[in-house]
């Protein structure tokens, strides 16, 4: 099956992103496709490359980046939610006059239409959050 994932919570504070990641890994191992993971609400913080978790803990953002690279998953951070919370790519930082960007490798910033489009194209949409 072709899956789309919606992650609505930030990393570490909430387990949603971990569970979504574990689901994606398991689905891919079973031969399914994860077409897109869309990050919304505080979920956009998963797309920052700046977190520094303790060395004996998982690095949630890096896990996503590596999984996306290995299995061609489209990681999309919602632009409206990202702007509120200060998640920026290079272009967005320039446009908004900010002095730096923080988007992690494999993530891109785009609109909510990407979530709806994924819902239309995929066989299943799974929501991870409260």
């Amino acid at each position: 099956m072709k899956y789309a994932i919606l992650v609505n919570e930030g990393p570490y504070q909430h387990q949603a992103s971990d569970t979504a990641y574990q689901f994606c890994k398991a689905a891919i191992e079973r031969g399914h496709e994860v077409f897109r993971a869309f990050f919304y609400h505080d979920g956009v913080h998963n797309g920052s490359r700046f977190p520094i978790p303790p060395q004996d803990d998982r690095n949630i953002g890096v896990q996503w980046s590596e999984l996306a690279e290995a299995h061609n998953i489209d990681l999309v951070v919602c632009i409206a939610a990202a702007q509120r919370r200060g998640i920026l790519d290079e272009g967005e930082a320039k446009r908004q006059g900010k002095d730096g960007d923080n988007i992690a490798p494999g993530f891109r910033i785009s609109g909510l239409g990407q979530l709806i489009e994924a819902g239309i194209q995929c066989d299943r949409v799974l929501v991870f959050g409260d």
């Binding site: 609400h41 409206a80 609109g111 239409g113 979530l115 709806i116 239309i120």
Partner: peptide
């Protein structure tokens, strides 16, 4: 959640 989910519904209407 409520505010941002309403934003989803409004954007999605275009589809």
């Amino acid at each position: 959640y409520a505010l941002e989910s309403l934003e989803v519904v409004l954007i999605a209407a275009a589809f």
